[in-house]
Design a protein around this nucleic acid. Structure first.
Lengths: 221, 221
DNA sequence: TAGATTGTTAATCGATTAACAATC
DNA sequence: TAGATTGTTAATCGATTAACAATC
């Protein structure tokens, strides 16, 4: 097992488990802030509305963080999950697309709390070049490749229309970007070793639409 | 079976299926736009990178839209999925929070294509009152309840800090809002009959962080 | 020590995939 | 008609829940 490899043994950790980790992290953070020192899987399960069994199973993918008869130390567990999620490392990132959504993302300071530092913003609109959002310069997309190399960038946020996203993603991969946070409504095709996390807002809206639609006329409970 | 109730028989349709519907819709829309008339589950499975079996199983939750020996008519299937997702209906919605993210969401015109019309924006910052984003007026949060009643609003987008989100959600529920698209980093607790769809960007970022972290040091494939 | 609660194994449940008869 | 492909049943796989011995 190499450094940074958290799963006990070498089993593959299921996506379902990983999807739940940030939520555990959020609740533990709140408990920590409220001064709670210890918590049992049972208590946490009631707060989070999941089963205690699931909590214990999930955590034991990564190690035995609890203690029989006591439960879990909140601060320790919070820190461990943070480490598992990679939040203790720093990453330099860039944003592509200074439209509405891009500007909102650039203005979102909470990234930095998690170790993600936005270094540059790229767009095709030359009216924006030279401007800044929170000290982050907006530059021409033509300068992107050079900037990535010179600034040790390993992650990119894509917030441009889908017609341009595929080409930009290709360039990013060529520049050895390791992670793409994709807000464009398209599935990006990247080689192994590059990770993509999609935020498809329109799909989220459609799910809400479905739920509204079936709730209204659905069978009574 | 009542109008608007799409599931065949009366089985509960699993969340896993529903989460895939918008993606089918997106791919079918692209196929339709490119002039493709018919497609088999096999062909679609190759484009979408899923199994043909899963596609057929998923669709047959809602009805037999295909034809043996032929496959599926793209335009018909696209329309059916749109209907299932409730995209043929109109909804009036409001936005709470005219910060960076809220402004980005207000500027996002694609909602309207799906039948979601933003009628008003509410904030606590009095410097914004009287301003407009795309003809949508920004008003005081104090006017919200009256506005909802007078404008037949059935959905709200919450894009405010989590400290204020719980209270606003409570007010919305009292005003008979049926759906909440929640961008605040908190789990909203709403009564049965009200649906919530969460977009937790920070959790998405953490998942990307996890993937980066394990990819780098992970076992070679 | 007795009580509490974990870590872990076993049982159950649900979702995905495979197979194939029905049928266009 | 023969070939293709669906709709659907059966088999498999994986995830969740339950149970309990280990142990703090």
């Amino acid at each position: 097992m190499k450094t940074g490899d958290f799963n006990v043994g070498n089993r593959e950790i299921s996506d379902a488990v990983i999807r739940r980790l940030p939520r555990y992290y959020r609740f533990l953070g709140e408990l920590k802030d409220s001064g709670t020192e210890r918590i049992s899987s049972k208590e946490l399960s009631e707060i989070m509305n999941v089963t205690a069994s699931q909590i214990r199973q999930d955590l034991n993918n990564f190690g035995g963080f609890g203690q029989q008869g006591y439960g879990y130390n909140v601060e320790l567990l919070y820190k461990e999950i943070g480490r598992i999620l990679g939040l203790t490392k720093m990453h330099n990132l860039i944003l592509i697309g200074a439209g509405n959504l891009g500007q909102a993302l650039a203005g979102y300071v909470n990234f930095e709390k998690r170790g993600f530092i936005m270094r540059g913003i790229f767009d095709i609109n030359d009216k924006l070049f030279g401007e800044y959002i929170r000290n982050i310069p907006i530059m021409s997309i033509n300068q992107m490749e050079q900037f990535i190399k010179e600034n040790n960038i390993d992650m990119a946020v894509i917030a441009i229309p889908k017609s341009a996203a595929v080409e930009v993603a290709k360039k990013l991969v060529d520049c050895n970007i390791k992670a793409i946070w994709n807000f464009s409504h398209i599935d990006l095709d990247v080689p192994a070793g590059v990770v993509v996390e999609n935020v498809h807002l329109s799909e989220s809206l459609m799910r809400l639409s479905y739920a509204m639609n079936t709730e209204k006329y659905g069978k009574e409970k």
